[in-house]
Amino acid sequence: MIEIKPNKCDFCGCCVGVCPVDCIDLKEADIDIDYNVCIDCKLCLYICPIEVFEDVETAEI
């Protein structure tokens, strides 16, 4: 699962441009992933110029 590291994002929209399912919402200084839509393709992690995203293990419930 992809997580956003807090206070690191510069809100440039690069990840939004490559997201194949349009699950990233970006306001002026606010970014959110809609996990109901996210397919965990990790393209956001791969394209981000400043390593804002992190691939974390999804905890078993």
């Binding site: 929209g13 939004v16 441009g17 349009d22 791969y46 394209i47």
Partner: peptide, 25 residues
């Protein structure tokens, strides 16, 4: 801009292919 969501909402294929997106700083 690069996010190009408006077009997607109207069904246009605006997603940028990874090889064509320059990750810039």
């Amino acid at each position: 801009g690069v996010e190009s969501r408006v077009g997607r909402w109207a069904g246009l294929a605006t997603v940028v292919k990874m090889k064509d997106m320059e990750s810039a700083i």
